[in-house]
């Protein structure tokens, strides 16, 4: 990465303006992915002085500043209680501790990584994102909208729910990207998201709708849910796994996940 100028902004307005001044101006959070993905940067905008590194809680929700490191999120006691700690579980399976000390929750969302182990979890947790200019939107709205304006994520909010959850990352080694990942929560109703298809993660809305209409989650219902999921997912092939194998993984782990959360 070749950087012309490094600017530590004093307020978020300044960051926003700089960001929109020039297509080659970039926001840096941890910078771990930026290094691999961007060659030329005009102004690199650091938000380090904006106090966006925090985790605040109230009765209903947890608010996490965009610059909070993944490791801090993972180790936070309150986050650990949300739906049996599904977010912590997912984060703990990303690379090693040192990169999780560097990488941020904001960068993990704004990078829109199709291999993300975090986005599927934020989808099932129905996480809210707060942007400087655009204001509030759900993570699902964010990842499904195209051509959004350049904006700055300031914090995210997750409701304190205490449902059951399931997270599974399938990868060749513990340090590899997922071949597929599966996130499920259940607190009376089901939410299911699949990531690393290898395309962008998605909520399985039809499958969720089907399951949420059922009174009894029998093995039969689970089987049906799995086949609905397979029709709505957009699985395909890359160097890590073929489409056919991803289908096997999706089938197997959605089934196992459902069984576990209703236990």
């Amino acid at each position: 990465m070749n950087v012309n100028e490094y600017v530590v902004v004093e307020n978020i307005d300044q960051a926003y303006q700089l960001f929109n001044q020039n297509k080659k101006n970039q926001i840096i959070a941890g910078g771990a992915w930026l290094k691999l993905s961007v060659k030329e940067v005009n102004k690199l905008i650091s938000l380090d002085d904006l106090s966006l590194n925090y985790i605040k809680t109230n009765d209903k929700s947890v608010e996490i500043g965009a610059l909070t490191s993944l490791r801090e999120v993972e180790m936070n006691d309150v986050v650990n209680e949300i739906d049996h700690g599904i977010l912590s579980t997912a984060i703990s399976q990303i690379m090693g501790v040192s990169i999780r000390n560097l990488a941020t929750i904001g960068g993990s969302i704004m990078g829109r990584f199709s291999f993300s182990d975090i986005i599927p979890v934020l989808l099932v947790l129905d996480c809210q994102l707060y942007f400087h200019n655009r204001g509030e939107m759900t993570i699902n709205e964010f990842i499904t909208s195209k051509g959004l304006d350049r904006d700055i994520l300031t914090y995210i909010k997750i409701n304190k729910s205490t449902g059951q959850s399931y997270f599974k990352k399938i990868s060749h080694t513990a340090l590899d990207f997922s071949m597929l990942n599966v996130a499920i929560t259940f607190d009376g109703s089901f939410r299911i998201a699949i990531g690393s298809q290898p395309g962008m993660a998605m909520l399985c809305e039809q499958t969720m709708a089907f399951l949420n209409q059922q009174n009894d989650i029998s093995e039969d219902v689970i089987e049906q849910a799995v086949s609905i999921a397979l029709t709505e997912l957009k699985l395909s092939s890359n160097i890590r796994a073929s489409k056919a194998y991803r289908e096997v993984l999706a089938k197997t782990y959605i089934k196992r996940g459902l069984r576990q959360v209703i236990k």
Binding site: Y6, G31, A32, L44, D48, S98, I99
Partner: peptide, 16 residues
Amino acid sequence: LLDDKPVPSCSLLALK
């Protein structure tokens, strides 16, 4: 270690 926590120095910009 950055403030006592391990980080990869290959990907931490010096200015940060």
